[in-house]
Computed example of a mutant assay.
Amino acid sequence: MTTWLAGMRMTADRLNDTDLSGNVVFLARRGTAQSITSGADSSSNAISWDNVDLDSLSGWSGSQPTRWTAPSTGWWILAGGVSFEGNSGGQIRECVWYVNGGAISAGRSRPIPTTAISASGMTVIARTVPRLLNAGDYVQLVAAQNSGSSLNVFTGSYQPFMSVRYGGPA
């Protein structure tokens, strides 16, 4: 958020920073099945968004549907979740935030670290993390699991989702 000082000129950038702070600028969902391969997290398992409900800053492109790209340098708050179809194999169901193709610090969510995985499906909520991004940095929500075979993400009311809020200027 812009800190206004005596004598400062109003500019479009300063007014936009003030107006956007705390607001959701991107919201997307996965409405159809997507196969998540078994194994370690990888950008090849990034969720491909097929329902974009809000993209007020034009950070998403259908030509790269797994990515949201920051339009300007600043703090961005990432939130999301992934639901996996039922399968009792393996011990891991998780989601991981990636920036520019790699996992970020404090960006991993693995809520069930036991050996008992439900055969009825599981939702994993990603960690909500503030992240300083440069203009052009891209964000992906990556699903990971180790059931021993590919699992689809759930759809319907369990759809994976991703949201981005603007936190303020750097």
Rank of each mutant, 00 (worst) to 15 (best):
T18S: 13
D19A: 15
D19H: 15
S21Q: 15
N23V: 12
N23F: 13
V24Y: 08
V24Q: 13
V25I: 12
V25Q: 08
V25W: 02
V25L: 03
F26N: 04
L27T: 08
L27C: 08
L27V: 09
R30G: 05
R30S: 10
A33Y: 09
A33G: 13
Q34R: 00
S35H: 03
T37G: 11
G39P: 05
G39D: 05
G39L: 06
G39Y: 06
A40F: 10
S42R: 08
S42Y: 05
S43T: 15
S44E: 06
A46F: 03
D50L: 02
D50E: 02
N51P: 07
D53H: 10
L54S: 09
D55R: 11
S56Y: 04
L57M: 06
L57V: 08
L57C: 00
L57S: 01
L57P: 01
S58D: 14
S58E: 09
G59W: 05
G62V: 06
G62M: 01
G62F: 04
P65Q: 00
P65G: 00
T66P: 05
W68H: 06
T69L: 10
T69W: 10
S72H: 10
S72P: 00
G74C: 01
G74T: 04
G74D: 00
W75R: 13
I77Y: 10
I77L: 11
A79L: 05
A79P: 01
V82S: 02
V82Y: 02
F84H: 03
G86E: 03
N87W: 08
I92L: 14
E94K: 12
E94W: 03
E94Q: 15
E94N: 10
W97V: 07
W97S: 04
Y98W: 11
V99K: 10
G102H: 07
G107E: 03
R108A: 09
R108M: 07
S109W: 03
S109L: 04
R110Q: 14
P111K: 08
P111A: 08
I112A: 15
T115C: 05
T115K: 10
A116Y: 14
S118Y: 01
S118N: 11
M122Y: 13
I125W: 09
R127G: 07
R127K: 13
R127E: 07
V129C: 03
P130V: 01
P130A: 09
P130M: 04
R131W: 12
L132V: 12
